[in-house]
């Protein structure tokens, strides 16, 4: 059964190349959305708050601060055909796997220290 699942996941994964993602990364997610007839790419930029692995179900939750300081979180399934491209802008030094503490912070307190390689 496990073989069946891995074989089907292989089939649906396609050959999309994704960058190495880590919690705390600043990313731009290019997401394809269909509006009636038209198709366009929407870019969602923010911090990777959570990274979940697991084949086809691999997902990231990206948090960004929208206008009026309202936090917006969006979860993307990385294997989804709608996720066109992901750009990593910056890595951050973080000591947790899930950065839920960012939810309670705003302004300067919500900054993350950059990690350079």
């Amino acid at each position: 059964m496990v073989d069946l699942i891995s074989s089907i996941e292989e089939q649906f994964k396609g050959n999309k190349e994704l960058p190495d993602l880590h919690p705390g990364d600043d990313v731009r997610v290019h997401n394809r959305i269909v509006e009636g007839e038209r198709e366009r790419i929407q870019v969602f930029q923010g911090v990777v708050m959570r990274l979940r692995k697991g084949g086809l179900n691999q997902s990231i939750t990206v948090r960004r601060i929208a206008s009026h300081g309202v936090g917006v979180e969006r979860t993307f399934l990385l294997a989804a055909p709608t996720v066109e491209k992901i750009e990593v802008l910056r890595h951050a030094k973080v000591r947790r796997a899930q950065l839920y503490h960012l939810r309670g912070r705003h302004g300067k307190a919500a900054r993350l220290k950059e990690k350079r390689y």
């Binding site: 089907i8 996941e9 649906f12 086809l56 179900n57 294997a79």
Partner: peptide, 12 residues
Amino acid sequence: MTQIFVEGGVVV
């Protein structure tokens, strides 16, 4: 169980 993508990127 697993989940797959169908037309329009819908997860099933």
